[in-house]
């Protein structure tokens, strides 16, 4: 079937962009994004509290386990503990798994699936809207934390290269986790539970096991890109440090790109073939 004479048949890219346009506003003002704002707002508040505390302290440096640490180290710890290990996977799970599920639950998928566009474009457009939405909320919060913590015991300029690489790592993490969980959401029932088990059960467990199994995680490649040393504040962290077997930076970037592309392709293929039954 061809398009009418005065209409251009929409390509996959054009359809993806139109779904992106349609979805971005919906996603930005969703209840999920309000939760996200709270999630990324909390570390900013924490950073502000640390800055105030350090200003009140005579030496200006907060103490952790009795030792005084500077702003750059605090910033690195927050990136590592809050963003890389928690916020990024959580966002991937909650947004990625809901790309199609939300349309199914809201029963609005019908309107998108009865238009002359490839069904995969619906998933791709919503995926890019997720990326834009999370990047727009997460990265500014990181910059704010940097501005708050950087001057503690140092200068903003010193830690600037670290900030740039951290922003890149976060964007890559959001890309890869989002793609993996988009596939989980398109393919499986109860995707949120499975996503949470993957991100907070499977990944941390497998990273502790020596061998090749850890290569089947996203965290293995994301954490290899982090420019900060892992804080050894717990037995688990010390164990992870001891068993660290990090891939090189280029290998990690390539691996994350491959994971993202393959997971997205699989998700698109699933959406093309799967039947979504909307409850009346």
């Amino acid at each position: 079937m061809t398009a009418p004479a005065n209409v251009t048949k929409p390509t996959l890219l054009a359809s993806t962009m139109r779904i992106f346009d349609l979805s971005l506003g919906q996603m930005l003002w969703s209840r999920r994004s309000m939760l996200l704002a709270f999630l990324v707002g909390a570390p900013v508040l924490l950073a502000a509290a640390l800055r105030i505390a350090s200003s009140a302290d005579r030496l200006g440096l907060p103490r952790i386990h009795g030792a005084r640490v500077g702003g750059a180290a605090l910033f690195g710890m927050m990136m590592w503990l809050l963003y890389i290990r928690f916020i990024v996977p959580v966002l991937g799970v909650f947004y990625g798994t809901s790309l199609i599920a939300d349309e199914v639950d809201d029963k609005t998928l019908t309107y998108l699936f009865t238009r002359p566009i490839p069904r995969a474009a619906v998933l791709f457009g919503k995926y890019f809207a997720y990326l834009a939405c999370t990047v727009l909320l997460v990265l500014p919060s990181v910059v704010l934390i940097y501005l708050l913590l950087g001057p503690i015991g140092g200068t903003l300029g010193e830690a600037f290269p670290t900030l740039v690489s951290d922003l890149g790592v976060l964007a890559l993490g959001l890309t890869a986790y989002g793609a993996v969980f988009a596939f989980v959401g398109a393919r499986l029932k109860r995707p949120v539970v499975i996503g949470l088990v993957f991100a907070f059960g499977w990944e941390p467990a497998v990273l502790l096991i020596p061998g090749y199994l850890k290569r089947l995680t996203v965290a293995y490649y994301v954490q290899a890109l982090v420019p900060h040393a892992m804080p050894q504040n717990s037995v688990v962290s010390q164990l992870m440090q001891a068993l660290a077997d990090a891939p090189s930076l280029p290998a990690s970037v390539v691996a994350l790109a491959v994971i993202s592309v393959v997971a997205l392709w699989l998700a698109g293929r699933t959406v093309e073939r799967r039947e979504y039954v909307l409850e009346q």
Binding site: T2, P4, T114
Partner: peptide, 13 residues
Amino acid sequence: PGLYFRLGFCPEQ
């Protein structure tokens, strides 16, 4: 999907 150029659907929901 090409057939949807010629179809219009008003769902019940």
